[in-house]
Design a protein around this nucleic acid. Structure first.
Length: 425
RNA sequence: GGUGGGAUGGCAGAGCGGUUGAAUGCACCAGUCUUGAAAACUGGCAUACGUUAAUAGCGUAUCUAGGGUUCGAAUCCCUAUCCCACCGCCA
């Protein structure tokens, strides 16, 4: 959520910057509501004050009246009247405030000045490239064919067990998948200073609201059939970031990492990436989340992207890093870098990590704060990034490490986690 | 699944219908004393929102959350959530 004060004081500047995100802010509607809110709030608070002070004096008045043997009912009747007037004003005020809140909650975060203009992913700007795409002296296969060849990857059986967009792995490939997870976690914990957390995979709606998935993006979520309004997590960002919802933390920065499954219903993307493991209803991800001082978040974002890139470098997978243009930027993010890994079968780079700075946007929704130098609570900044999406990393390893005989070489850094094994076949 | 008990400021803990935004203690901050520190003493010490040039005043809200009773609720009633204890059941 944006700072309502900012909207009140400088709405035109906000509207202009939101255009970068291709969001048209209805400034007239906001200002009209805001004007109503102000008038109603002043009136409601005045009435409330009157009611409070009258009630406060009642103890004494009733005592006096009773001492004189007078009727107490007229005194009560006036109180009743004040109550009715105040309640009516409150109802009006609440209506306007609800409308204002609904509008406020639907406004996306303001993009950072450095975010390039653009409409969609084609306008994202490459900031660096690492590694050379490998050239093969045989016809490259994609991960689906590679996996099928040694019965390691089975989409048909997964479809039988559940449905489309699920996968089943077995043997060396399943182990490699697990080894990748372990490798990523170890690297972030031992080399990048993250603390590992284990979190629930089912969350309530307050948590989804805190990170911004709700109320706008409910169709991407799997909701449980339970009166408690529980959802499967679409990313570990939700449970990890919400660790500090409604809290004032003592010390910043806090850097956490977790490995979790992620569940996405992907309602809006039928027909896209239907083949293979690129887009699944269930996948594994290692997620990094940082809680930082507002002055530090832009440096932290650069470091976070570096932490994610390190994984690809150690795996010797060629990649490029792009900064998302305004039109491709997510609802809650102020700036996002995507890391894209080279996929030989497609001859192009595909997203494998997304690292974002949310500024105080999520923190305001979550009321996550820290004590500043004056000892006053202040909203902190949140960031997160995949480090990395495990399924897509596995796919990238398979395709980039494929051999002429259809086997897959295991990257050096993973061999200790695979009992020294060098190939999967 | 059953039966009880509980949730109050950073923490501990009073209050159980009317100057209670909330006693008291601890912690914290400032000062006095001291060569310095400790101790002792004095004072201060919640958050959000609104109004405002203001982190000054003033107002409103907040004693887990949401409803209700009442002129008036931390205090009474209902519901939800969480915690604790005991019993049962199951990994």
């Amino acid at each position: 959520m944006l700072d309502p004060k900012l909207l009140r004081s400088d709405i035109n500047a906000v509207a202009e910057r939101l255009l970068v995100k291709r969001y048209r802010l209805d400034t007239a509607a906001f200002l009209a509501l805001e004007e109503q809110r102000k008038a109603l709030q002043l009136a409601a608070e005045d009435l409330q004050q009157e009611r409070n002070s009258y009630s406060k004096s009642m103890g004494k008045l009733i005592g006096e009246a009773k001492a004189k043997g007078e009727d107490v009912e007229p005194l009560k009747a006036k109180g009743e009247q004040l109550k009715m007037a105040s309640a009516a004003a409150d109802t009006e005020l609440t209506e306007v405030q609800d409308a204002l809140n609904a509008m406020l909650q639907g406004i996306p975060n303001i993009p950072h000045q450095s975010v390039p203009a653009g409409n969609d992913e084609d306008d994202n700007v490459e900031v660096r490239r690492w590694g050379e795409p490998h050239t093969f002296d045989f016809d490259v296969k994609d991960h689906v064919d590679l996996g099928a060849a040694f019965n390691g990857l089975d989409f048909d059986r997964a479809a039988k067990i559940t449905g489309s967009r699920f996968s089943q792995m077995r043997g060396g490939l399943a182990s490699l998948h697990r080894a990748l997870t372990q490798f990523m976690l170890n690297t972030h914990i031992q080399e990048h200073g993250y603390e590992e957390v284990y979190v629930p995979y089912i969350v309530n709606r307050e948590s989804l609201y805190g990170t911004g998935q709700l109320p706008k993006f409910a169709e991407d979520l799997f909701k449980l059939d339970d009166e408690r309004e529980f959802y499967l997590i679409p990313t570990a960002e939700v449970p990890i970031t919400n660790i500090y919802r409604n809290e004032i933390v003592e010390k910043l920065p806090i850097k956490l990492v977790a490995h979790t499954p992620c569940f996405r219903s992907e309602a809006g993307s039928y027909g896209r990436d239907t083949r293979g493991m690129i887009r699944q209803h269930q996948f594994e991800k290692v997620e990094m989340v940082q809680f930082v001082h507002p002055d530090e978040s832009w440096d932290a974002l650069e470091a976070l992207v570096g932490d994610a890139e390190t994984i690809l470098q150690k795996l010797e997978l060629p990649y490029r890093t792009v900064v998302l243009c305004g039109g491709d930027l997510g609802f809650s993010a102020a700036k996002t870098y995507d890391i894209e890994v080279w996929l030989p079968s497609e001859g192009k780079y595909r997203e494998i990590s997304s690292c974002s700075n949310f500024g105080d946007f999520q923190a305001r929704r979550m009321k996550a704060r820290f004590r500043n130098a004056e000892g006053k609570p202040e909203l902190l900044h949140t960031l997160n990034g995949s480090g990395l999406a495990v399924g897509r990393t596995l796919l990238a390893v398979m395709e980039n490490y494929q051999q002429a005989d259809g086997s897959i070489a295991i990257p050096d850094v993973l061999r200790p986690l695979m009992n020294g094994q060098t190939h999967i076949k």
